[in-house]
Design a protein around this nucleic acid. Sequence first.
DNA 1: CTGAAAGCGCTAACAA
DNA 2: TTGTTAGCGCTTTCAG
Lengths: 343, 343
Amino acid sequence: MTDRPQRPLTLRDVSEASGVSEMTVSRVLRNRGDVSDATRKKVLEAAATLGYVPNQIAGSLASQRVNLVAVIIPSLGNMVFPEVLTGINQILDETPLQAVVGVTDYLPEKEERVLYEMLSWRPSGVIIAGLEHTDAARAMLTNAGIPVVEIMDTDGRCVDSMVGISHRRAGAEMARAILKQGYQHIGFMGTKMPLDHRARKRFEGFTEHLAKAGVEIEDREFYSGGSALAKGREMTKTMLDRSPDLDFLYYSNDMIGAGGLLYLLDQGIDVPGQVGLAGFNGVELLQGLPRQLATMDACRLEIGRAAAEIIRDHGQEGASVEPHKITLTPKLSLGDTLRRRRV
Amino acid sequence: MTDRPQRPLTLRDVSEASGVSEMTVSRVLRNRGDVSDATRKKVLEAAATLGYVPNQIAGSLASQRVNLVAVIIPSLGNMVFPEVLTGINQILDETPLQAVVGVTDYLPEKEERVLYEMLSWRPSGVIIAGLEHTDAARAMLTNAGIPVVEIMDTDGRCVDSMVGISHRRAGAEMARAILKQGYQHIGFMGTKMPLDHRARKRFEGFTEHLAKAGVEIEDREFYSGGSALAKGREMTKTMLDRSPDLDFLYYSNDMIGAGGLLYLLDQGIDVPGQVGLAGFNGVELLQGLPRQLATMDACRLEIGRAAAEIIRDHGQEGASVEPHKITLTPKLSLGDTLRRRRV
DNA sequence: CTGAAAGCGCTAACAA
DNA sequence: TTGTTAGCGCTTTCAG
């Protein structure tokens, strides 16, 4: 066992230990070019004994290539984003590319900072949630000279490529399904997040579709912070106490929807006969509730995978140079809470 | 608006645009040394107009300093780890340091790969989950010459510093609490994950404590994959059908515990009178269930914060050079499922 | 307060 | 198949 080295090892150390030139050592370690088996063996042995770890900083500077992909998302606390990351990693795991994650907390200025920070590492591509950015951020993305994929949302203009779903349409579809079942008195609950554009668009799509049918939301309630399940419970109680005539509750996410569902069942309210429910996201987490909540899948895994594929294929021969605009279709699942029983 | 540049901008571009030497431009952009307000202004303007983003690769190579902290965790799907990350970010957000996350999927070889990959960026520190690593990984950590903090678990030997809880003790504490309430016929449910050492240690601590009191686990069941809530339901049904005499069910995590709870309530079984329940983690997510599940807090946020603080303070004047060994004490919360009602 | 020179550790390009 | 040379874009150091 050697002592802890003060100075990190360099290629030169391996070169000296193996009696092979730095250049050839470099070739061996990167599996580049032709190297005789004898030399290769010498080098590999020396590197292993010394415990040499290459310096990518120097390597990237010299080669002008960086195997990093910047991934910028609003939050890790919302399971949606880890799932997108999983999709991204599924694709990148089979390439030399490596995702680096930055979190914005839904704050535009923080997004701008994080983006700047990440671009300063000259990544090979950017995957960023949403289409809404500060002007400065948009300018950085435009000028970065690398592929940029905006994900999750396709209602708007993108800088380069985009992969997502139309939240407007998702909201409208849900409205259609609800009306079709004959519900008429609808309440809405969601997060108090002016900066969650996707939730906002769903809401807009939802109300606009209702409006076309001459229906208006009769009550609404917003929350922030705290356990979503508990908040769903509380808000549902508050709302039904205030507006006992409601026959449907639309939640902006499945967690609060689940809280609402548990509350209604506790109260012995007939779901979906007396009150119907729906959420959004298709959180797998929640399978196992007493009733399956109606929801809409946000295609999280697919979005991550498609975005990563765009970055991976960029600049490959045969790949189109055109930006991609991919709109996935969320699947509506009625579950047990959106099928009105015949009276 | 300028066209998309083929070549990324360099300091030299800013230097030429502002008529100031590269060196001084660099100083302005880093807020280092004294620069006259006039020059500073010129530089800042030029940089902003051009949309210059510094190249950290070159900067880090030259300065031999990298503001990256490698964070290596088993998974993002388990909410525990995003929460630890949140704690880490809370601390690092107020420093120039930036966390870079690598995911191992609980696979030792993947951990080794990810570690190698991250060390090749010469980060300023490493935060890594668990104390169990391959020999090669351990060697890399030892030789990296940077602070290393192993987190989550303190039952074992660490390379450098560690911050976590004793899962052995956590398991034992839970056993003690259960016995104290008079439960005697105990079943266990958990994940089928030989590589989740923390779950294993909790289980060992649990059974060892029971053994001291002459009690043995009467049934057990393991799952893998799928929705934890649903699995908790299924396993609970399976187990109670098989071993109807059980009066307590210990779950290795709160999600399956919640599934079990919902199942028991569905069945009209008296919780905690007829059957008591406990989980592990203190998942905030679950507040809002019909009954509050007994659980034990894993101190996720604190662990993240403490680990990040160790990295942050490393090498600061006045900071101790000694490795830190921090064992936090998980809080037991009895909730509504571990208080046996007087018969 | 500002600038010039040297070099961080590696790889592209070329020469042998 | 192997080695040599010249940088990559920045910061350190030292001189003005």
